[in-house]
Design a protein around this nucleic acid. Structure first.
Length: 172
DNA sequence: CCAGACGTTGTT
DNA sequence: GTCTGG
DNA sequence: CCAGACGTTGTT
DNA sequence: GTCTGG
């Protein structure tokens, strides 16, 4: 279940069997500097797009943490990224996007005493597209073996990762 | 999400 | 086609 | 009562 | 933990 519950629909949290209790009691922040979606306008060529904040700052997804007993009685710790409808920037690429929280809302989101669904639900909305950037990235992102600094992948034209020239370029 | 493996026979 | 691993 | 499911994304 | 189906 943990592997399949990597995302949680924000709209349904209050009633969802799996996520209702974590929503009330164990909300978390998941730190990121970007996320990826694949443009499938041309079904023969999936184009990876990186989404990030315009000012390149780190940000936080709204997340849920959980701890439960697995099939063999082992304790499993897992977390899920909450999703919402896409903003105008993401919409052409994908029908969902992760919830990005504003720093001013971190405390309210993390406060375990705050169990008011009515106060939390309004935070689970699309981030302002004006504060975000979308850019095509190299197909290198498609292979999980390329687990490298994302700056080596951003803005590189496919099909090959030109790592050497990037390392030598102070502008990157 | 994508990439890669998946199977048996028979042994180039 | 479908499942697993990353 | 117990057993089994519980989810999201995308459908290449 | 909790809901559904049998």
């Amino acid at each position: 279940m943990a592997a399949k519950c990597i995302n949680a629909r924000g709209e349904e949290l209050a009633n969802n069997r799996v996520f209702r209790t974590p929503f009330r009691r164990s909300r978390c922040l998941i730190v990121a500097d970007g996320f990826y979606e694949w443009d499938k306008t041309n079904p023969k060529k999936k184009v990876p797009i990186r989404f990030s904040l315009s000012d390149d700052s780190l940000f936080a997804f709204a997340g849920l943490a959980d701890r439960w007993s697995g099939p063999a009685g082992e304790v499993v710790e897992s977390c899920s990224v909450i999703t919402t409808e896409p903003n105008a920037l993401v919409q052409p690429t994908h029908n969902r996007m992760p919830v990005i929280l504003h720093p001013a809302d971190y405390d309210r989101w993390l406060d375990p005493q705050n169990q008011e669904v009515a106060a939390l639900q309004p935070l689970l909305v699309p981030f302002p597209p004006e504060a975000m950037r979308a850019e095509r990235v190299s197909d290198a992102i498609n292979n999980a073996k390329n687990d490298v600094d994302p700056r080596l992948i951003v803005a590189v034209e496919p099909p090959r990762l030109r790592a050497r020239s990037l390392f030598d370029d102070d502008d990157i």
